[in-house]
Design a protein around this nucleic acid. Structure first.
Lengths: 202, 202
DNA sequence: TCAAGGGGTGAACCGTGGTTCACTGCTTGC
DNA sequence: GCAAGCAGTGAACCACGGTTCACCCCTTGA
């Protein structure tokens, strides 16, 4: 063979891939997952439409990459908190408050990916993410039941309801607020509701 | 003028409109709002595509009609319960349980319209419905606070969270269950969680 | 310097699905 | 029976957006 990518070429290629990914995140933050069109991403990244296909097999894969990157981080944060040493209820409270704060602070990327609705195939991705989140929160509820701090209940169902309650509160705030998103008390309020929802002490 | 619709013609016209509306509901139940294509509705109703436009200005108006009809009934039911004579907490419990049961029983129409995500312009409609629902439930929470049965809180925020929690539980169940949707206990479980979420007695 | 081939380009292509419109048949009112 | 015109029809039209591909430039390795 006569052509093999040098380290420099590799770096250049990676750089463009990153640019595209960043552009895609920007578009998602601005218009939601449904608003991600290949033309818009290309324009935002300053490359040609065709170039996108040198790095991603298609729109679906590009979306998957954005979702993957955004959610892995958020879910990791949740898992870290869930694995903490305190009792289940404070861990649940911290998890929900932290998730809410991060969603509000992320410039809509996290909320657009995790909380806001999309259509069709991207929706399946989103459903998977939400299920994972429900599993983490449901696990905390199960812990709380074992500890005797929470009443007996279907922990996974509660986890699902928690995801819905938290998402709706975030989406509603972002939809209504616009710029006035900087409500410092929202994470605490949502966390309080989450603990109550699980049956925790007042 | 030489042509004016007779009563019989009027009736025939209304009948077709009803057929189209019923077909549209069937399609929505089967494929969600996003799956409502004019061709599918026409086929289901047994009329030509062009005929749809004799009764509805376009896809948007057809969807609006389906949403309108489906939601008015559900919201009326909620409002009736909310206006009942009992204390706020039992009313909240009944409202949520009833809504959940009806959503599960409606052959997916209600849940598809109210709970499940859609894209773009239909989403605005859905958001309005959810906001109305949040207002009703939030009102019950506010009542509960006045009665002293619920702790002080942002009642509207709680209403929003309630909508999210209930919706997510329903969607999750319908997505997972398929045929095994006949879980008799779900409405009660969801209602219990709703009361806890609002801070009600265990 | 030169052959080989990967990367960028963007106009063209294509599938999807909402909307239109010329035509037909039937009802209405005389 | 007859003129008028509304309702039904469905093929054609059009907009939109994802995907492709022929082309060119540039880097690579000799």
């Amino acid at each position: 063979m006569v052509y093999r990518r040098s380290a420099a070429a590799e770096q250049r290629r990676d750089r463009i891939r990153e640019d595209v990914l960043r552009a895609a995140r920007t578009i998602v933050a601005r218009a939601g997952i449904d608003g991600l069109s290949m033309a818009a991403v290309a324009a935002e990244a300053g490359v040609a439409v065709g170039s996108l296909y040198r790095h991603f097999a298609g729109r679906g894969e590009l979306i998957a990459a954005v979702v993957e990157r955004t959610c892995r981080r958020e879910l990791d944060v949740l898992r870290d908190i869930a694995a903490g040493p305190e009792a289940a209820v404070p861990r649940l409270e911290t998890a929900v408050a932290t998730f809410t704060r991060r969603a509000l602070d992320s410039g809509r990327v996290a909320s657009a990916v995790i909380c806001e609705p999309t259509s069709k195939e991207p929706e399946l991705l989103r459903r998977r993410i939400r299920a994972e989140m429900a599993t983490i929160l449901g696990g905390l509820v199960a812990d709380g039941i074992v500890e005797g701090a929470l009443p007996a209940q279907d922990a996974m169902l509660t986890g699902t309801a928690l995801v819905g309650a938290v998402s709706e509160a975030i989406v509603d705030r972002l939809a209504a607020g616009g710029a006035a998103t900087t409500d410092e008390t929202l994470p605490a309020q949502v966390a309080t509701m989450a603990v109550r929802l699980a049956g925790g002490p007042r």
